[in-house]
């Protein structure tokens, strides 16, 4: 599903070159649920941005669904991002002046679906996240947990094979965090591959596999059977 081999990412200013990822190797198989942990500034978000085709890597090889994405132009990367990848962010990132229906509609518009197909998909995902009755609400009229469920619905509407979640429960209280996590687990059960960045060891423990990033590299690979590593 996702394979990174010796991926590098560096940011350069006039005087300093910072290596965010160095010889980054990772393989994620179809249907996996992976938790990515690591200290702040270790390169977790950079990894997500590269995996989500929001940023280009500086070197190495990145295969998404078996295709090397290195040489793709912006239009092709955007197309791939729209069709295969869904994003969930810590801050929900809903567009504040669009109602819930129109927020979920955004990626479907870029996909070029007809109105009837868009409506069918939006109704379906709203049902799945339990907010069908609030389609015309604005994001500001919802609780944090509800907003994140809408963000998940928006990510799912395009039926992506790969879901990238960056601290999806970071802004939620424990009850709402648990509800969101249960929803992600359900989505994973439907067959969607999920890579989730988190600082929360309890959440990481619920993932199928954990990886830790330190100084831009995958430090080790561990399964949740070894909780000691997660608290590092």
């Amino acid at each position: 599903m996702l394979k990174m081999h010796k991926v590098r990412k560096s940011f350069r200013t006039d005087t300093i070159e910072t290596h965010a990822l160095r010889d980054f190797n990772l393989e994620v198989k179809e249907g996996e649920f992976i938790a990515v942990t690591g200290p702040s500034g270790s390169g977790k978000t950079t990894f997500l941005n590269i995996a989500g085709l929001l940023e280009a890597h500086s070197g190495g090889q990145y295969l998404l669904d078996g295709d090397d994405v290195s040489g793709l132009n912006d239009r092709q990367r955007s197309r791939l991002r729209n069709e295969k990848i869904g994003f969930i962010f810590q801050g929900f990132n809903l567009i504040p002046d669009l109602n819930l229906f129109d927020n979920i509609d955004v990626p479907l518009r870029y996909r070029g679906f007809k109105a009837s197909e868009r409506r069918r998909r939006i109704d379906k995902v709203l049902q799945q996240v339990g907010l069908a009755a609030r389609a015309k609400y604005l994001p500001s009229q919802l609780s944090g947990g509800q907003q994140q469920r809408i963000a998940i619905a928006r990510a799912l509407a395009g039926e992506p094979r790969f879901l990238l979640a960056d601290e999806p429960t970071g802004n939620l209280d424990s009850l709402m965090a648990r509800q969101v996590m249960e929803l992600l687990e359900l989505v994973n059960d439907w067959g969607t591959t999920i890579v989730m960045v988190t600082h929360d060891p309890d959440l990481a423990r619920r993932a199928e596999r954990n990886i830790q990033i330190v100084d831009g590299q995958v430090a080790d690979l561990e399964y949740h059977a070894n909780p000691a590593a997660l608290s590092a």
Binding site: D74, S78, N93, V106, Y110, R111
Partner: peptide, 15 residues
Amino acid sequence: PEMGIRRALGASRNA
């Protein structure tokens, strides 16, 4: 910020 979201959701630079 809104454009960042739209880009993440599949909008190309041209779009």
